[in-house]
Design a protein around this nucleic acid. Structure first.
Lengths: 294, 294
DNA sequence: CGGCGGCTTGATTCGAGTCAAGAACCGTGG
DNA sequence: CCACGGTTCTTGACTCGAATCAAGCCGCCG
């Protein structure tokens, strides 16, 4: 199904900021729910004209979704279109020859799955994307994308920013995987997920990942992840009952992980996600002060 | 000193591909040697018109260099210009509160030191760049850069590509740090350095880093790096005499690290940097074949 | 109700960190 | 030219966090 069939709906919800929240919630699922995270994301990346948003949305085609466990982008081959995650959770990963799986990043609604392949088509074909929950997907032809970028340079900049943001996440992960013990490592990873989910409007404290997913992302064995989870539960940070990962004490989690969400570039809701000042030892040299949050 | 004082020289060497190699080598140091890696890099990123190269080069001002150990970009503050590494080796790093240093990436001549701060000025101010050897630096005003990108969209794309390339490096590092034991981890890191150095015309087998630098990049303790080096020497991969890190058996190093340089996007000289086919177990599903190199 | 994927547990091993000390090297200044 | 002080490198002894191996368990879906 091509999105242009719901064009009327689109131009309506694209201007959501002119409408009340209540009206929006009346819009149907395929319209609002599907594209809202993307809109939110593009806006936060600096796309501020409705014309541009509209233009982008009109080029997006909805493609068949995938079920949990299926690959969204198979390793090794690149396509002539970019894929967009509209609903669900996915991950960018790579399987080294030894059969392991390293998860590079989790992806949420509104994220592009394979921008890298658009800009560097030949490079790095080993990375793939797989669905961690059932997913809804959109695609946009590379040529459409190029045309849009040519027409709206600020869109190009926004996508560039999105890439840098991803890079920023990779760096932080590198820091954590390289230097932090298991407990903080996992805590940080969980913080990142909560923050990124909130940034696209997902406010649930439950993170729909398995312990295996976390293990593959954190670079820890499943067994050790499990023991770490037990510790987090003992600390009353994760909920004790049930098998789902549910954060019950976000504050303590942030504290434990020494999480500073600044690197995620979420202008709207940063306030929750900064470490309190006493946990941060700034070099005297720069003399910058920190936002203190409650 | 502003570069326009050597403008005549510049427009000459910018067109180096029309001249013979021998003529080039006659050009003076400040002209050819300083900008050649940058030119090489921009070309490999897809900037193929001399007009564009020329335009970029003309906006670059040479700034005072730094000595080994000094910060090129201090943590915490962003400037109104981007900095460009013209000569020497630097690293992008971050110091977590515990005083550790995590090196995210090594930078070589031709690399932009702080593209991230140009695209995402507010985000992630903790990262910094420091000189690992004495360095020559150039700067380019953000407004000049923006203007250039507006005028030459392919330049914007090239810089976007450069960022994605960096991200690609981060990912591979993440894989290695997260999953590989010390020996292969270090080996991979060394391969990456050799490959990237070659890509900008530095062909020496000696890598001008200290064991501490490697430790901070690999996420290992100095003591353990040292023991790993001893192992690499015992395997006749690193040279035995002296304290410099010199690779004497690149082939075996690549082999040990299972290094596939593909992710580095170096069209010119990839052939050296691919793992032999028997070390690569491809999934049957994709059916891609591999370039076999001798 | 049976099987399989995900979670939990315990026992054991091992790679890498830490601590501590000494040696080799380098630039600097007398 | 040499003596000095600070890095950088090396080595050994010890510790510890996390991997591995091996079961067993729980709960869901067909």
């Amino acid at each position: 199904m091509h999105v242009s069939t719901m064009r009327d709906t689109l131009t309506l919800f694209v201007r959501w900021d002119y409408l009340g929240t209540y009206m929006i919630s009346l819009l149907n699922r395929s319209g609002r729910q599907l594209f809202d995270p993307l809109i939110q994301k593009l806006r936060s990346l600096g796309v501020d004209s409705d014309t541009e948003l509209d233009a982008v949305l009109n080029r997006i085609k909805v493609r068949a979704g995938t079920r949990r466990g299926e690959d969204i982008i198979a390793p090794g081959r690149s396509a002539r279109h970019s894929t967009l995650l509209l609903e669900g959770v996915a991950c960018l990963y790579e399987r080294p020859p030894d059969g392991n799986r390293q998860i590079y990043a989790f992806q949420y609604s509104g994220d592009f799955c394979d921008l890298h392949q658009h800009v560097l088509p030949e490079t790095n074909n080993e990375v793939a994307v797989t669905a961690l929950t059932d997913c809804s997907l959109g695609i946009i032809e590379h040529k459409d994308l190029e045309q849009l970028i040519a027409q709206y340079p600020s869109l190009g900049l926004a996508l560039w920013r999105a890439s840098m943001l991803e890079a920023s996440i990779f760096r932080k992960r590198l820091l954590n995987v390289g230097r932090q013990p298991a407990l903080q490592r996992v805590a940080h990873l969980l913080c990142e997920q909560l923050a990124r989910r909130e940034a696209v409007g997902i406010n649930s404290a439950t993170i729909p990942l398995t312990q295996m997913d976390l293990a593959d992302a954190a670079g820890l064995s499943i067994v050790h992840i499990n023991r770490t989870f037990q510790e987090l539960r003992r600390l009353n940070i994760l909920s004790k009952g049930g098998r789902t990962i549910k954060v019950v004490d976000r504050e303590r989690l942030v504290d434990l992980a020494n999480f500073d969400g600044n690197y995620l570039n979420m202008p709207q809701l940063l306030s929750h996600w900064q470490v309190k000042i006493e946990h941060k030892r700034r070099s005297q040299a720069t003399g910058l002060s920190w936002v203190v949050t409650g």
